[in-house]
């Protein structure tokens, strides 16, 4: 039983670090800030969640604290990425030239002052 738990924990830790790496790779490779946000939010969130759950399973005494951490990451990461995306759009960061549509352009709510 304990061995199985440790195996699951090890697998989760490995998957978590793999996704953290893939998220950073996406942040490095993607062409504009919006695509980078997609990688920087999704992959790192799932990576951190899986890694923390793995650590919580490997050391069951830490499980409650690990759950609080996971909840925290799950709630704050989308909010901060939304804030970055909105700020870069309003400060005039252009979309990648390969982008095919921009509905935000014709709308007042998306306009802002300042230059990027």
């Amino acid at each position: 039983m304990n061995l199985l738990l440790q195996g699951v924990a090890g697998t989760l830790i490995l998957i978590g670090s793999l996704f953290l790496f893939l998220g950073a790779l996406g942040v490095y490779r993607f062409p504009d800030v919006y695509n980078r946000l997609q990688a920087g939010t999704k992959s790192t969130t799932l990576g951190a969640l899986s890694l923390i759950l793995g650590v919580g399973l490997a050391e069951p005494a830490w499980l409650p604290k690990a759950l609080v951490l996971m909840l925290f990451i799950l709630l704050t990461n989308p909010v901060s990425s939304h804030a970055i995306g909105r700020a870069s759009y309003k400060s005039g960061y252009p979309l990648w030239e390969g982008s095919i549509v921009d509905h935000c352009q014709e709308h007042d709510a998306c306009k802002g002052g300042g230059e990027a």
Binding site: L20, A24, V33, T44, I52, I73, N77, A116
Partner: peptide, 26 residues
């Protein structure tokens, strides 16, 4: 090349560092 790009990178680094800290704790 611009500030938003750096901000995205730093935001991703914060999450990665949180994971790393938890792993170091173990």
């Amino acid at each position: 090349p611009k500030t938003p790009d750096r901000l995205v990178a730093v935001d991703a680094l914060v999450t990665i560092t949180m994971g790393l800290m938890v792993l170091l704790g173990l």
